[in-house]
């Protein structure tokens, strides 16, 4: 196929099917995977996804310590996580990066970041990037919201403006949480943002 002749056909239409190299993210409606894998929390205890599941659902945040894009969203992200907890969701943040790639992503820095940012929820080491691989997570930050039955309801970004909290026009995650609490269908179940690629353990 010819990209120029097909313009403005999207690049993906040419790529689709030809180069299935990207990790396949969980599809909406899929069951939460790897719920029994125990991961080391910042308090030293081992925690699994099934340990944190909430009555209203579960929010899983793939994040890390070094990424400036994560830092740009940090305050909003922690606020959203804490708010979701208060609303009855289980919340957990995972660092899936190999710390040998980035020293900032070592366990001690998880502890510092959890304290400094005011996370009320567990922040665990995804050793071997097992969960990131199972979820098809590729970047940080990346959010997965499951309902009370453990089915994926929303996957994607926190909102539509990492650069400036005052200029956010779409609160993707909060809208998804609100819709889920009201028992409504989530109007935008998947979104994307650029972000730091997860440094998978080799």
């Amino acid at each position: 196929m010819n990209l120029r002749k097909l313009f403005p056909t999207m690049l993906s239409m040419i790529i689709a099917g030809s180069f299935p190299q990207f990790a396949q993210a969980l599809e909406i409606g899929t069951d939460m995977p790897m719920t029994e894998i125990e991961m080391k929390n910042v308090d030293g205890n081992m925690v699994s996804l099934s340990d944190v599941t909430g009555d209203k659902g579960t929010l899983i945040i793939f994040t890390c310590n070094h990424c400036p894009y994560v830092k740009a969203w940090e305050e909003r992200s922690v606020k959203a996580g804490n708010k979701a907890m208060k609303a009855g969701f289980g919340v957990i943040a995972l660092n899936s990066n190999d710390p040998s790639e980035y020293k900032d992503d070592g366990y001690e820095n998880n502890q510092k970041r959890s304290t400094n940012s005011g996370m009320m929820y567990p922040y665990v080491v995804d050793d071997g990037s097992q969960l990131a691989k199972a979820f098809g997570a590729t970047r940080t930050p990346e959010f997965f919201l499951f309902n009370a039955d453990g089915k994926l309801e929303y996957h994607g970004a926190l909102d539509d403006n990492a650069q400036d909290a005052d200029d956010v026009s779409a609160h993707y995650l909060q809208d998804a949480i609100d819709a889920q609490l009201r028992g409504q269908t989530i109007s935008v179940p998947t979104t994307k943002s650029v972000g730091c690629s997860i440094k998978f353990y080799k």
Binding site: S12, I15, F22, A23, R139, K192, S193, G195, C196, S197
Partner: peptide
């Protein structure tokens, strides 16, 4: 590209 996840 809709198949691009956004990772850089």
């Amino acid at each position: 590209d809709p198949d691009w996840t956004g990772a850089l």
